[in-house]
């Protein structure tokens, strides 16, 4: 029984990291209606910016995260302005493919500039494990869960209690109507990209600290994050949470009770079957026409 609950706890820990990575995807989708497959590359850049801030500016870990959030956010804004905004008249599939192009471009540029060497971020966490009723969770994992919760709450607050957030939701619901109401749609796009990239920077730095950083680190987490947000429903924060936790727990349980080498098959099966029943994921609104 302990084994089962430990597996669930692990799933929650793993899943909240997925959610954290997926949040940015959700923010961009809610305004731009695109799944940004280059998000993992921002995640990678964010980790590198934190690393360079710490090693060259000698700033502490948390300051480095803030620097990285801002710098990555600016990169996100530049991408919005240069790549995505001029493509407003294109269809969803074009956007998807452009993000694939960006993914190739950024990751290989990084490979070239940073070299494939492994770097490590030295976070402040100790190898501490908290024990509760026989269940274990490490300090670092717990911290990631807490940060994820804080960011979700902040995102929720921003969406529902600030003027910009409300405007953004208006744009997400009906772009034309929002425009007619005098909302600056372009500005909303920029803000969405800033927030998404900043969230990616947090995720990249925290995961980079837990693991290690290199230019190829972005793609695999992106794939997991995509599964999470598609499963949960694009554009839905609730979806990202439920998706992350479900995928994390399923993965953890299937490693524990099924087969480690085969564990991913269940994730994809669940994703596939869920989509068959709910074509917009669990909480996704039907895409607008």
């Amino acid at each position: 029984m302990v084994e089962f609950f430990q597996s669930i706890v692990n799933g929650i820990a793993v899943g909240s990291a997925y959610t954290l990575t997926g949040l940015g995807l959700t923010v961009i989708f809610s305004v731009y209606r695109i799944l940004n497959l280059a998000h993992g590359e921002i995640y990678m850049l964010g980790a590198f910016i934190s690393f360079f801030s710490m090693s060259y500016l000698n700033v502490p870990f948390f300051v480095a995260i803030v620097i990285s959030m801002i710098a990555s956010g600016v990169i996100g804004m530049i991408l919005e302005r240069l790549v995505f905004r001029p493509m407003k008249n294109h269809g969803e599939a074009d956007f998807l493919i452009v993000t694939v192009g960006l993914l190739f471009f950024i990751s290989n540029l990084a490979m070239y500039v940073f070299t494939p060497n492994i770097r490590s971020i030295q976070g402040p966490f100790e190898q501490n494990t908290f024990n509760f009723l026989g269940l274990n969770i490490s300090q670092q994992r717990l911290f990631i869960i807490i940060i994820t919760v804080i960011l979700i709450v902040a995102l929720h607050y921003f969406n529902f209690h600030t003027k910009t957030g409300k405007q953004m939701r208006a744009v997400a619901q009906d772009k034309h109507a929002a425009q007619l109401m005098g909302i600056n749609v372009n500005r909303m796009g920029v803000i969405a990209f800033f927030i998404a990239a900043a969230l990616a920077a947090v995720a990249g730095t925290l995961m980079g600290d837990m693991q290690s950083i290199n230019p190829a680190m972005g793609f695999a987490p992106l794939l997991m994050a995509v599964i999470v947000v598609i499963f949960g429903g694009l554009g839905s924060v609730i979806g990202a949470i439920v998706g992350g936790l479900t995928i994390g727990i399923v993965q953890s349980l299937s490693v524990t009770y099924f087969s480690s080498a085969l564990s991913n098959i269940l994730l994809y099966l669940i994703l596939f079957l869920t989509l068959m029943v709910m074509p917009n994921g669990l909480f996704g609104r039907k895409s607008y026409e």
């Binding site: 599939a93 995509v226 598609i230 991913n264 098959i265 994809y268 989509l275 074509p279």
Partner: peptide, 21 residues
């Protein structure tokens, strides 16, 4: 039953299942 991005990722999910097999 899927459209757009969901269709793309749905097909990707199936392909991953096949690759794992």
């Amino acid at each position: 039953r899927l459209t757009g991005t969901y269709f793309a990722i749905g097909t990707l999910a199936f392909a991953e299942i096949v690759n794992i097999i």
